[in-house]
Design a protein around this nucleic acid. Structure first.
Lengths: 251, 251
DNA sequence: CAATAGCTGTAACATATGTTACAGGAAGGG
DNA sequence: CCCTTCCTGTAACATATGTTACAGCTATTG
């Protein structure tokens, strides 16, 4: 069972191994995660098993706060989070960081940077809990695309979804004031959950990090919006009072 | 020759037609553009001709300043600019705009939004000169991917390249001051052209638009950097005096 | 040539945001 | 229980950026 070596600290992406016929460890352990993974959408567990058997693959485990991949790393393999969660962050030279996205099993990492002229990762990816990641080399993925139409379609969907997310992020960063960013965040919440009163999951520091702003500035804006009667904010509990005014803040 | 209808004002994406065997208009007119197009990279003119014959397709012409596609439009077809150029812009509700990218023949439009859950275009695309665009419906493209490995690979490369560009844009917008943005712009110039002295192509207004800032603010920053001896700026002529200081501004 | 439009340079002023600092509350660990 | 750590609330002040306005320059057009 070669894939036990995948948990090795000496893991090296170059030496990813194919499974032999007896290998059942790799995918059986994570078949549930893979079944709900976007890239294997519309495929049965058995089909996924067959696919994983055919491609070179390996699983690696990361601890909380461990760096999974760095800005500048070369992407040669698709990485699927089969367990755990991570965040993608950018940093400037002073150490100020900007959180680009949060990734949970069974999301894929680096799917957008596997091809093209520049295969370097533009972000740091950091585990926020114990995380297991399945590696599949680019060439194997490419072969898979030719044989498994469904996987190709899913992959195209993944990259398109990502492009949409990135574009939204650009809009958020480039077009809006802090009030606009926060209003946007709240209104997305309302749209998703359909309630005008809720508890937000991110701390103010995290939100500031996502928005690329400073924490006290965000705090001040929340206070102001509260005082103006647009929202009621108490800690992480938010109540939308004047939804129309909030929409107006989107600019 | 059905495709002459493609120049019709009543063009409707739903009714894109396949060519019959006699059709030579569509691709022969644009075969040079398509040959240098990324999506047909590594394919010979004849092969491209065969491909275009097999898929539904249509060409439409846009005048300067005409809106090619709007924020919110549904993307059902890949669009290739076979002649001309366009810009992709985002606008907020006040009309403040942010230029995301400039597109020249033979770039593709909307390649990143063809698949996935949300096929709506997040930007406005506006012709900046007379522009001709070739439409290929998604389903035909998908079929093509299965039969023409090269096209698939090229498409994956295109979307990856785009994701890289978007991510760089996020970094630019989210992580840097005006000085940082301008320094970044200048240093990219130096890296591409290898000269410390050059004439920039964009007006200050355009640059401000790309950076998502106001024109006088950019002007002021340029003046300050000039006065501090980091650069010499005279109109659009720029000379890098202190490259090290400039790099320091990237923060 | 005059008239126009678009660019640049610049200034005064208004506003938004960052920075730093400190105090207090909530949660968890020993 | 105390101690630590992380979070929030808040204030004073510094700085960056936006806004508006105007003047001059250049190219284009009729």
């Amino acid at each position: 069972m070669r894939s036990t070596a995948t948990e090795d600290n000496n893991f090296n992406e170059k030496y990813i191994q194919p499974c032999n016929d007896k290998c059942s460890f790799c995918f059986l352990n994570y078949v549930d995660a893979l079944k709900s993974s976007y890239i294997f959408k519309d495929l049965k567990a058995e089909a996924i098993g067959e696919i994983i058997k055919k491609v070179h693959h390996q699983v690696k485990t990361y601890q909380k706060d461990e760096l999974i991949a760095s800005n500048g790393d070369t992407c040669n393999s698709l990485r699927i989070i089969v367990k755990g969660a991570a965040v993608g962050e950018m940093m400037d030279f002073q150490g100020k960081s900007l959180r680009i996205e949060e990734l949970h099993a069974p999301d894929t990492i680096a799917s957008a940077f596997l091809f093209g002229e520049d295969n370097t990762l533009p972000v740091d990816v950091i585990a926020i809990e114990e995380t297991k990641i399945l590696f599949i080399p680019r060439q194997d993925l490419m072969n898979l695309f030719c044989n498994e139409n469904t996987v190709l379609k899913n992959y195209l969907d993944i990259t398109s979804n990502r492009a949409q997310k990135l574009t939204k992020k650009i809009k958020l960063l480039g077009l809006q004031s802090i009030r606009g960013k926060f209003a946007n965040y709240l209104l997305e919440h309302v749209r998703r959950e359909g309630k005008m009163e809720f508890t937000i999951k991110n701390s103010q520091s995290e939100l500031a990090n996502i928005f690329g702003i400073s924490r006290p500035s965000l705090g001040r804006v929340i206070r102001e919006m509260h005082n103006e009667g647009i929202i009621e904010a108490d800690g992480r509990n938010i109540k939308i009072v004047d939804k129309k005014a909030l929409s107006g803040l989107l600019k």
